[in-house]
Design a protein around this nucleic acid. Structure first.
Lengths: 249, 249
DNA sequence: CTTGATATTCCTGTATGCCGTAGTACAATG
DNA sequence: CATTGTACTACGGCATACAGGAATATCAAG
């Protein structure tokens, strides 16, 4: 059976995969939130988002539901969605969970990652380090997200990534905040270096501990920002507050 | 500034919350899936679901998206949603994650649960035990779900519940399967008793270990069902197969 | 000026119709 | 019997409609 397929192999394969517009919408919103383009507590009016994104309400709604499931958005019935506010307690809880999950990821990475995985991790690490030294915090956020992605990918357990993704997303804001504190970036780098080292080693238990303490350290410095920053409950009094963004000609 | 709010605190807060129909839809579908009313791999045709549930497409779509986020439903672009099939590897991964999360929940329960929490836990345990001894597997599933809910609630960390909820949902099927194996129910009860005991004690480390091993044991017996059961990939060949449900007069 | 009642507006929640396109079963065709 | 053509199904996305709840604005009265 030497049909055409056997002859040309898979070289001609067109890989175009139909990526639903919805995903794009979700990502845009997610990034807008973590970069504080949409500040905490801001109400998210569906139609406004439609205009901003240039998509229909259907998509916006579905995206908002998904973001709600991820905890980035709070939807109050009959009132609508708004950017979730992260209070100290919740943040603490998130870090508690992250700590064990990252630890697990680290352990499994040691056990399962291929050389390719390790290489990707090193690359991502370098990129993140560069961005951080450049002082490009927003960029660094992206790069380090890739680093974590590589780490989780190497752990060969999709459930970990699925569980961690929303948690990490919700702490992005805190991370940005803590990076803008003096000296914190250097500290962060040191921890990350230790973590990388452990994870690239061959001792699962050490990787576990190292990842765990990394997250716990991050938690400490992130939670600090709650104590010193202006509390600023910023009650969403008037609905007009955010209106400035849509001049409506 | 001692206004009224400062005096009475939040004790008088009226919490009446309107429950959106959407949630109902999600729950129905979730339960239908975990009870295998909708078998693995079954295609979920939006309009059929609309008829079955008596709601509009909008709701069905949003519900499906949410279930996808939870991993209970797989949506293939331009092909549509179907009930997610749980293969051995994925299941193993889920249990790996559940193990550490339940362990964390157990540890935190010991540290933070109030007497009321403990009482609720005991109650739920008793109910689950009864259902299990009665041989009512489907009912037991519900009861034990409540047990876990109580456990997680006592851990005072919403992120744990949020992360665990989808994982537990996806393993319901396996749990049902393993309970229908001879002797497994007794075994399961023993483990659960040990776990309850540890969690009601005052040693966080013991609770951690106990919860962890409980999940790992469950994993072992659940994974067995993959090895002995007919693989039954059940390729969804004809689209007519499921059609019997909609006679169309 | 505060309180209470009423009107208004905004926005969500839900339903529905429409079109374009992808995938699939099945017949036609050579 | 393999290929091709065709019709159907169902999703993906958009637009619109409308009821009902909440927040706000307006206004009257004490």
């Amino acid at each position: 059976m030497d049909n055409l397929g056997d002859i040309v192999g898979r070289s001609l394969l067109i890989t175009r995969k139909p990526v639903p517009l919805r995903n794009e919408v979700v990502e845009r919103l997610r990034s807008a939130i973590s970069k504080q383009l949409l500040p905490q507590g801001a109400r998210l009016i569906e139609r406004q988002l439609c205009e901003m994104l240039g998509v229909s309400r259907t998509l916006v709604r579905e995206a908002l539901r998904q973001l709600e499931a991820e905890g980035l958005v709070t939807i109050i019935p009959n009132r609508g969605p708004s950017v979730a506010v992260l209070d100290r307690e919740t943040a603490k809880g998130i870090y508690e969970v992250r700590a064990v999950l990252e630890a697990l990821a680290g352990e499994l990475f040691v056990k399962r990652a291929t050389e390719e995985d390790r290489q990707r991790l090193r690359t991502a690490f370098a990129a993140g380090k560069r961005a951080l030294e450049r002082g490009d915090n927003a960029g660094a956020l992206d790069e380090w997200t890739r680093f974590y992605d590589a780490l989780h990918a190497g752990a060969r357990n999709e459930s970990i990534s699925a569980a961690l993704c929303p948690l990490i997303g919700r702490t992005h804001i805190l991370r940005l905040r803590s990076w803008s504190m003096p000296g914190r970036r250097q500290e962060s780098m040191k921890e990350l270096e230790a973590m990388l080292d452990a994870v690239l080693g061959d001792d699962p238990a050490r990787a576990w501990e190292s990842c765990r303490t990394h997250v716990l350290n991050a938690a400490v410095s992130a939670l600090k920002s709650f104590d010193q920053e202006t509390p600023q409950p910023a009650k969403p009094t008037s609905r007009r507050t955010k209106r400035t963004a849509s001049p409506r000609e």
